[in-house]
């Protein structure tokens, strides 16, 4: 989608090694590349969550950029304050007018879909020059794998266990970008690090835009999704190849799929690598497939053409 190549990825690491994220953690990959894409001139407001606790254990820190954690539900409000302060101090000559310091809020799915939704809405509505990054591992992984508004259908979590009556989560994942889009923001995009140049191009674009922007980052979780640590990137790739996750962007109202998938793989290939879906029957897998088919149809409708193709079964 742009001239950004693997070779353009900066070498400097702004997320220091030694943090306590799990082996194979998707969020660790998201954060590492997010910071590389953003560069040093940022101030980060971080919601409570996995990444927050694993990167800031006092007296150490993994953050080589200014960073603040206040609480779970308010990253967008804290970032609003940071942005307003930078603006006022620039106007009063207390900060250099030339240098752009971007306020960035980071939250997990719990801190975004659920408890932080109000603060996010306020920030978007007020038009702050803040980039909000949602790393979505599809449950409250930090506190022990409890379901969130981002948990997908049938996923086992500790609060949607598989029992005699329950079959894991029974509701569909909330359309978070739809909610963000309703605020009329200039830029919102879904990113997946298995498509790393697309990831960089979108983060850079989102950071450069004046005003609120939103990045929804796919973020597998080894203990929560019950997958092997070495499969993180493979699962991320399968999410796109099966149409479960679609890389797209909405730029000033224009919808565009950035990773077209002419021929989809069956969703089963994505599900079977994850222990959280191990209990699914054939019928339930078919239900998930139908749900993905519907979502793909919706995406194609928005795109105005078939960018995500039909499932091609291996014979």
């Amino acid at each position: 989608m742009s001239s950004f190549t693997i070779a353009s990825i900066p070498r400097e690491e702004l997320l220091a090694p030694g943090h306590r994220m799990c082996q194979g953690c998707g969020a660790a990959i998201v954060m590492r590349h997010l910071l590389k894409a953003l560069g040093k001139d940022v101030i980060i407001a971080h919601a409570t969550g996995c990444v927050e606790v694993t990167t800031s254990l006092y007296p150490e820190t993994a953050w080589r950029v200014p960073w603040i954690h206040v609480a779970f539900e308010n990253a967008a409000a804290v970032a609003s304050g940071i942005e307003a302060a930078v603006k006022a101090m620039k106007r009063k000559g207390l900060l250099s007018k030339e240098k752009r310091v971007k306020a960035v809020a980071i939250g997990g799915d719990g801190g975004t879909y659920d408890i932080g939704l109000q603060a996010l809405s306020g920030m978007l509505e007020r038009g702050h020059d803040v980039l909000y990054v949602l790393y979505d591992n599809e449950a409250y992984m930090n506190t022990g794998i409890q379901r969130s508004g981002g948990t997908p259908l049938y996923a086992w979590t500790t609060t949607t266990p598989v029992g005699k009556l329950w079959r894991g989560e029974w509701r569909r994942k909330k359309d978070i970008i739809g909610i963000v889009r309703a605020h009329g923001v200039s830029y919102a995009a879904a990113v997946n690090f298995a498509y790393i140049t697309d990831f960089y191009a979108k983060v850079k674009k989102a950071a450069e835009i004046e005003g609120p922007a939103f990045i929804h980052a796919y973020s597998p979780c080894v203990p929560g999704w019950r997958h092997e640590p070495h499969l993180t990137v493979k699962i991320a790739k399968l999410a796109v190849q099966t149409g479960t996750w679609v890389n797209y962007e909405i730029e000033r109202g224009t919808f565009r799929v950035t990773t077209p998938v002419p021929k989809r793989l069956p969703v089963e290939e994505y599900l079977r690598l994850q222990g959280r879906f191990a209990h699914l029957t054939k019928e339930e897998v078919d239900t998930v497939q139908r749900m993905v088919d519907e979502d793909v149809e919706y995406i194609n409708r928005l795109a105005g053409t078939v960018v995500i193709g039909p499932v091609e079964r291996k014979s």
């Binding site: 603040i68 804290v78 609003s80 940071i82 307003a84 302060a85 006022a88 207390l94 603060a119």
Partner: peptide, 11 residues
């Protein structure tokens, strides 16, 4: 939360 963020940024 916003004034905490702004104060942390030096305002």
């Amino acid at each position: 939360s916003a004034v905490v963020g702004a104060s942390a940024a030096g305002a």
